[in-house]
């Protein structure tokens, strides 16, 4: 007999998403770290042309998307653990989602202008 033991089933998906997005962000940051700390002084032209390249824009957008998803899972876990009044927790969760949406919009605006 097949029985459903738990509820909404988003636990595994979020857990997995948090780990995949973590790996994406780690790879991006190690790459950027090598660019920034390679010893060459970073000039405006180098900085601008780095973010003018298509792959860099896509990679940065992927990073921002990963951060938003990763942060949503993490912040939601923190709020579920420490903020028990439902109204306050819901308000903070909505505020978090709005903040992350603003981050994504801001990122797009910075990258493609």
């Amino acid at each position: 007999m097949k029985r459903l033991v738990v509820g909404a089933h988003y636990g595994l998906r979020d857990w997995l998403a948090q780990r995949i997005t973590a790996v994406v962000m780690a790879l991006y940051m190690v790459t950027i770290g090598f660019v920034l700390f390679s010893g060459k002084p970073v000039t405006y032209d180098a900085w601008r042309s780095l973010f003018a390249q298509g792959w860099m824009r896509v990679a940065t957008l992927l990073f921002a998307f990963s951060l938003a998803w990763h942060a949503w899972v993490g912040v939601r876990d923190i709020l579920m653990d420490y903020i028990h009044p439902t109204a306050l927790r819901l308000s903070l969760q909505v505020a978090t989602l709005l903040l992350l949406a603003v981050y994504l919009g801001w990122t797009v605006q910075i990258l493609w202008r």
């Binding site: 601008r48 942060a71 923190i78 990122t107 910075i110």
Partner: peptide, 21 residues
């Protein structure tokens, strides 16, 4: 550290990236 990175540091980083580019 995760909470600090979400707020305020992500917003701060975006501000620095915005102005510098």
């Amino acid at each position: 550290s995760g909470a600090l990175l979400v707020f305020p540091f992500a917003a701060w980083l975006l501000y620095v990236l915005d102005v510098s580019l």
